[in-house]
Simulated scan of single mutants.
Amino acid sequence: MHLDGAFRNLGCEVQGEGNKKRHSIFGFGISIAAAGALLNPMHAAAQEFAPGVTCEGRICTNDTDDQYVVLWEVTCMNVVLPPGETVSTVTTTTGHFSQTVAPRSTLSVDTDCPQGTTLSYWITGVQPG
Score class of each variant (00 low, 15 high):
M1A: 15
M1C: 13
L3F: 05
D4A: 07
D4G: 03
G5V: 01
G5M: 05
G5N: 14
F7D: 02
R8C: 10
N9R: 13
G11A: 10
E13K: 07
V14D: 12
Q15I: 10
G16K: 14
G16C: 14
E17I: 05
E17M: 11
G18F: 13
N19P: 15
N19A: 15
N19S: 15
K20E: 14
K20P: 07
R22F: 14
I25D: 08
G27A: 02
G27E: 03
F28S: 13
G29K: 15
G29C: 05
I30T: 11
I30D: 08
A34W: 09
A35K: 09
A35T: 13
A35G: 07
A35Q: 10
G36S: 12
G36E: 08
G36K: 15
L39A: 03
N40Q: 13
A45M: 05
Q47I: 07
Q47A: 03
E48S: 09
F49G: 13
F49R: 10
F49H: 14
A50V: 00
A50C: 02
P51C: 07
V53H: 09
C55E: 01
E56L: 11
R58Q: 14
C60A: 02
C60Y: 01
C60E: 00
T61D: 11
N62A: 02
D63T: 05
T64C: 00
T64A: 01
T64M: 03
D65G: 14
D66P: 01
Q67F: 06
Y68T: 02
Y68R: 00
V69S: 08
V69P: 03
V70E: 13
W72E: 02
V74M: 09
T75H: 00
M77N: 02
M77L: 15
M77S: 02
N78I: 09
N78A: 06
V79E: 11
V79L: 12
V79S: 14
L81P: 11
P82A: 12
P82I: 13
G84P: 11
T86D: 14
T86I: 09
T86V: 07
V87S: 08
V87Y: 09
S88D: 06
S88K: 10
S88M: 10
T89L: 08
V90F: 01
V90S: 03
T91D: 14
T94E: 13
G95W: 07
F97H: 08
Q99E: 15
Q99C: 01
V101A: 06
A102I: 04
A102P: 09
P103G: 00
R104F: 04
T106L: 11
T106M: 15
L107Y: 04
S108I: 06
S108Q: 12
S108D: 15
V109H: 01
V109I: 12
D110M: 07
D110I: 03
D110P: 00
T111W: 00
T111I: 06
D112W: 06
P114L: 09
P114F: 05
Q115K: 12
G116Q: 05
G116S: 03
T117F: 08
T118Q: 12
L119V: 02
L119S: 00
L119A: 04
I123T: 06
I123V: 12
V126R: 01
Q127V: 10
P128A: 12
P128K: 13
G129V: 01
